[in-house]
Computed example of a mutant assay.
Amino acid sequence: MHPLLLEGLTDAIGFVGGALVAYWLGKLLGFDPLAPGYGGSTLGGIVLVGLGGGLGLQVARRWRAKARKGE
C-alpha cells in the first residue's frame, strides 16, 4: 500500500473514531452537539467532539510512528 494512502486512511480513522467516542461520551454526560440552538449543552458537545477528533488523530499518528520504528 502506498505510504501516503496509508497515512491518510489512518489519520481519517483516528479522527472519526475519536470524534465518535467523544460524541457518545458527551451524550452520556448530557452534552448534545446536535441539539438545536447554541446552549451550553450544544457548545460543550461541540468542544468534546473536536477534542476527541484531535486526540484520535494524535493517537493514530503516534501508532503509525511506533509501527514505522518497529519495521
Rank of each mutant, 00 (worst) to 15 (best):
M1Y: 14
H2T: 14
H2G: 15
P3T: 06
L4Y: 12
L5Y: 08
L5C: 06
L5M: 13
L6N: 10
E7K: 11
E7P: 03
L9V: 13
L9I: 15
D11H: 08
A12E: 05
A12Y: 06
A12T: 12
I13K: 09
I13Y: 10
I13G: 10
G14L: 04
G14N: 04
F15I: 08
F15A: 15
V16G: 03
V16D: 00
V16R: 00
G17Q: 05
G17T: 05
G17D: 05
G18C: 05
G18E: 01
A19L: 08
A19D: 01
A19F: 05
L20D: 00
L20K: 00
V21Q: 04
V21A: 09
V21K: 03
V21N: 04
A22F: 02
Y23L: 13
W24M: 03
W24G: 00
G26N: 03
G26Q: 00
G26S: 07
K27H: 01
K27T: 01
L28R: 06
L29T: 08
G30E: 03
D32N: 15
P33Q: 11
P33G: 12
L34Q: 14
A35H: 05
A35W: 04
P36D: 10
Y38C: 08
Y38E: 15
G39E: 10
G39N: 11
G40T: 11
G40N: 15
G40S: 13
S41V: 03
S41A: 11
T42M: 06
T42N: 05
T42H: 07
L43Q: 13
L43A: 10
G44R: 08
G45V: 03
G45W: 00
G45I: 03
G45N: 03
I46Q: 07
V47Y: 09
V47R: 06
V47C: 14
L48I: 13
L48A: 10
L51F: 04
L51N: 00
G52E: 00
G52S: 06
G53D: 04
G54K: 01
G54Y: 04
G54C: 06
L55F: 10
G56L: 07
G56V: 05
G56I: 05
L57C: 04
Q58Y: 08
Q58D: 09
V59E: 01
V59H: 00
V59Q: 03
V59G: 01
A60R: 01
A60H: 02
R61V: 07
R61T: 06
R61C: 07
R61K: 13
R62Y: 10
W63G: 08
W63N: 12
R64K: 12
A65W: 09
A65Q: 12
K66G: 12
R68S: 12
K69T: 09
K69F: 09
K69Y: 08
K69N: 11
G70I: 10
G70C: 13
G70E: 14
